[in-house]
Simulated scan of single mutants.
Amino acid sequence: MGMEWLKTGAFFGSIMFALMGVVIFLLAFVIIDKLTPYNLWEEIVEKQNRALALVVAAMSLGICIIVAAAIHG
């Protein structure tokens, strides 16, 4: 294993893919938040809805896995 990850192209490519993944995740989360009949952030933070927090966490992991597979593949 060499120092290939230090090359400029590989480094900036990794940064671009990471930023692209975060942006896609945020867009997907905002879309899902708009599709639900209530405000997810208010329900989780202010009303302490732990069941909804668990569902949103699972949804977030699912979206992240899909985005990572799409970028990697």
Results as ranks from 00 to 15, higher is better:
12 F>V: 15
41 W>G: 09
66 I>H: 02
49 N>C: 01
24 I>K: 04
16 M>D: 08
5 W>T: 15
3 M>H: 14
58 A>Q: 05
29 F>I: 09
2 G>Q: 06
2 G>H: 09
54 L>Q: 15
26 L>Y: 07
26 L>K: 06
46 E>Q: 13
13 G>T: 06
45 V>H: 02
54 L>F: 15
4 E>K: 14
36 T>F: 11
67 V>W: 03
37 P>H: 05
54 L>A: 15
19 L>E: 02
26 L>R: 10
61 L>K: 07
31 I>V: 15
35 L>C: 14
65 I>Q: 00
47 K>F: 04
44 I>D: 00
65 I>H: 05
14 S>P: 00
6 L>R: 11
55 V>S: 04
17 F>V: 13
10 A>P: 01
35 L>A: 14
44 I>G: 04
15 I>Y: 06
31 I>M: 03
50 R>Y: 12
73 G>P: 03
25 F>S: 00
64 C>V: 10
72 H>F: 13
5 W>K: 13
64 C>L: 11
52 L>K: 06
53 A>D: 02
73 G>V: 08
42 E>D: 12
36 T>Q: 07
66 I>W: 04
30 V>M: 08
51 A>T: 14
50 R>K: 12
18 A>L: 09
64 C>R: 00
16 M>P: 03
49 N>E: 02
70 A>C: 03
61 L>D: 04
3 M>E: 11
51 A>E: 09
50 R>D: 09
64 C>M: 10
34 K>R: 13
47 K>M: 06
47 K>R: 11
22 V>I: 12
37 P>W: 02
38 Y>E: 01
5 W>L: 15
72 H>N: 10
48 Q>L: 09
69 A>V: 14
37 P>V: 08
53 A>H: 05
63 I>R: 00
6 L>T: 14
43 E>P: 00
36 T>L: 14
63 I>L: 01
20 M>S: 13
43 E>M: 10
4 E>H: 13
33 D>E: 10
67 V>I: 15
30 V>P: 06
56 V>P: 01
57 A>V: 14
49 N>V: 08
67 V>M: 03
